[in-house]
Design a protein around this nucleic acid. Structure first.
Length: 669
RNA sequence: GCUCCAGUAGCUCAGUCGGAUAGAGCAACUGCCUUCUAAGCAGUCGGUCGAAGGUUCGAGUCCUUCCUGGGGCGCCA
């Protein structure tokens, strides 16, 4: 099915030819949605731009186009307005037809325009050996979302994680593994290194304190790259540990698994890449390093900038790896399209490797390699979050905090309790002052005590949902408080969450967790991916306005109607007419029919926030419809059925749209 | 020094290829639950689109200069 806008565009194109001749066959009709509902649904602005070439008044041009337009099937007779806009108002009968068509279409009218093509979405998952922090959210969430959208558009899509699994930090971890867990290398069953966070912290501490250990660590990198079997084994253990730990968070967040193809994967191809660049005459030796000199990039002295593909010590660097990846993807993976949702600070790097990839003949005309830059996540101070300095919030903490805050009753009850004494016991310190005195900080002791209290209490509060869920044993000191919370919560949930016959305490709590995670993902996805944003709990965990819960709620309302009326939406008579009588019904219907336009646009600009915006508007329009149009209580049977169909289509659209964002719907809230 | 990105309501941000009176959400304030879930709906308040020039029928959008913030610029990834 051709989208409405495409049908109109074709019609205006025909009119251009009829009115002004074949020369205008390729003129863009400049069709866009109307800037204001009072102008109709769509407008063509082409007449204004043709004023000069045709030497006529724009209004006269518009009139001639209208004379030649054949759109009687789609809309009311078009009108010329203002300086020469052509306005189109869609006919109700056309909208009703279109709705009937997408009703029986599992794709809701969206063309699989990528069918038969293969695409790669290459996003940096958390690097091996690093604990996930909030800065890792963007690439993972946006990368997963773009992959889902391309997949839905028909592309055979590979999600590839180009993770750093070969670089310098490994030395430290391998050396620490050998030192602290010597048995791990001989006895596979002996491996229990605890979670990655503590292992990494321990290794880092060791590395920072001891210069001898630093040497050992560097030595390990050399051994690794030389292929020493024992070192490789240690490396494998560290990678497995890292992948397992991060996989848990990926699962929790509903991110689809990645093909792990890190730097180590391309290691065997690096020398070939350099040799091929040499054969092509692109390679120049400079100060002992093998370089490709770039066009359009200069250094501080204004001389051409080299891209180093082999260091003077013979080693390779990340540019080499990325080039190898490009070559592999073209020759082995046979892809047409590669999308890199990666931080904007790497724009130069991508421009450079794409340039070299093209000059080497790997990236050809029909290949589409594109960097989709991501803005930085900034700290409260407006500076980029750095994992190195350790100030970035842990991702796991953010997810737990979201769980706590996603249900207002739960959050209120937890905040009401006095946690100070419990927190101190769990901190395993005699008193706050002693604990605070150990912190290395320039602040006064009083400030340190206050800060320590706050963070410790927050840490304990984040545990509450986990304890309530029964995932971890509740420490005895916290048991009475947790029991109280549970009791009070059960009372409230009986009243406003349907706790009892329909839902168990655990299932509600689990839904609350899903809502929290959805809110976090959506907070990221709803923003233009190129803009920086300042990380803030309050913003990411908001539950009102343009948020995931808002859209989930619209969906839940529809499910509620189904339950209340004993309706099986899929059983609604396929022949029942759709009647668009009220303004809100019309508005909702038009929104439902714009999904395909939206996704077509995203295929081009790769901006998921457009889809978020679309779904928010759809939910808004549904809520207005819900507010003003009785559905189950509709007086006439055919109106009731028509409205149920609108409900069903809305639910399907929200469900599909959210699933493309990587968010699952709930049946109840 | 060179270069890339950004600057829109008190806050966070949309704004399609240049198009008609620049839009949301949050915050603040006012209404609406005996009626399909109020995580909702309706409304009020809020703007020299960083500044100045230019291009033209028309500029938040394109060009130039400047200001402010952030990123990048040879052997880290």
């Amino acid at each position: 099915m051709l989208s409405t806008i495409a049908q109109l565009r074709a019609a205006v194109q025909q009119a251009l030819i009829r009115a002004f001749g074949e020369a205008f066959a390729t003129t863009d009709p400049m069709l866009v949605s109307a800037s204001n509902p009072k102008f109709g649904d769509y407008q063509a602005n082409v007449a204004l731009s043709l004023a000069k070439p045709l030497g006529q008044a724009p209004r006269a041009i518009a009139e001639q186009l209208v004379q030649n337009l054949d759109v009687a099937e789609l809309c009311d007779p078009p009108s010329v307005a203002g300086p020469g806009f052509i306005n189109f108002s869609l006919k109700h009968s056309f909208l009703e037809e279109q709705l009937q068509a997408i009703r029986i279409d599992p794709r809701l009218g969206v063309e699989p325009l990528g069918a038969g093509k293969r695409a790669i979405v290459d996003y940096p998952s958390p690097n091996i050996a690093k604990e996930m922090h909030v800065g890792h959210l963007r690439p993972s969430v946006i990368g997963d979302c773009l992959a889902r959208i391309l997949e839905f558009l028909g592309y055979e899509t590979l999600r590839i994680s180009h993770l750093g699994d070969w670089g310098t930090p490994f030395g430290m971890l391998i050396a620490y593994l050998r030192e602290a867990y010597p048995n791990a290398l001989n006895d596979d069953s002996a491996i229990n290194l605890g979670d990655l966070a503590s292992f990494y912290r321990a290794a880092k501490r060791r590395f920072d304190e001891d210069t001898n250990f630093q040497d050992t660590a560097r030595q390990s990198v050399v051994q690794l790259q030389a292929g020493d079997p024992e070192t490789l084994k240690a490396w494998g253990i560290v990678c497995d540990l890292s992948n397992q730990t991060n996989q848990k968070i990926f699962d929790l967040m509903g991110l689809k698994p990645l093909i792990l193809r890190g730097e180590s994967f391309y290691n065997p191809f690096l020398s070939d890449v350099v040799a091929e660049l040499d054969r092509l005459g692109l390679l120049v030796e400079d100060q002992g390093a093998q370089c490709v000199f770039l066009e359009g990039f200069t250094n501080k002295e204004g001389k051409p900038l080299p891209m180093i593909v082999q260091k003077s010590d013979g080693g390779y660097n990340y540019a080499t790896t990325d080039l190898a990846a490009i070559r592999y993807r073209v020759t082995e993976d046979q892809v047409q399209r590669v999308v890199y949702p990666v931080g904007a600070e790497q724009s130069n790097h991508f421009a450079q490797i794409f340039q070299v990839g093209k000059r080497a003949g790997w990236i050809k005309e029909d290949h589409d390699f594109v960097h989709a830059p991501l803005g930085n996540v900034l700290g409260e101070d407006g500076k980029k979050l750095k994992s190195r300095s350790g100030e970035a919030a842990r991702l796991k903490d953010l997810l737990d905090e979201a769980w706590l805050r996603a249900d207002p009753d739960l959050y209120q009850l937890v905040c009401e309790q006095d946690w100070e004494a419990i927190a101190l016991v769990l901190l395993e310190e005699p008193d706050w002052e002693t604990a605070a005195a150990r912190l290395s900080s320039d602040e006064s002791l009083a400030d340190n005590v206050a800060a320590l209290k706050k963070t410790t209490i927050e840490t304990v509060q984040r545990q509450v949902p986990i304890w309530l869920m029964g995932n971890e044993p509740v420490p005895s000191v916290a048991q009475p408080v947790v029991a109280n919370i549970r009791q009070a919560l059960e009372q409230r949930w009986v009243e406003n969450r349907g706790l009892g016959a329909e839902r168990s305490f655990q299932s509600i709590l689990s839904d609350v967790q899903a809502i929290g995670i959805s809110a976090i993902k959506y907070a990221d996805l709803s923003q233009n991916r190129t803009s920086n944003y300042v990380f803030s709990y309050a913003k990411m965990l908001a539950l009102q306005g343009n948020t995931a819960p808002y859209m989930l709620y619209a969906y839940v309302r529809i499910q509620g109607i189904g339950r209340k009326g004993g309706i099986d939406f899929s059983e609604l008579d396929a022949k029942s007419p759709i009647l668009l009588k009220e303004d809100v019904e019309l508005t909702l219907a038009k929104q439902l029919l714009q999904l395909d336009e939206m996704l077509l646009m995203i295929d081009q600009d790769l901006l998921p926030n457009r889809l978020g915006q679309y779904l928010f508007e759809l939910s808004q329009k549904f809520n207005q419809f819900y507010d003003r149009c009785p559905i189950l209580q509709a007086e006439e049977e055919d109106v009731k059925t028509s409205r149920l169909i609108l409900c069903h289509l809305t639910a399907k659209t929200i469900k599909l749209g959210l699933s493309l964002l990587g968010i699952s719907v709930l049946e109840r809230m």
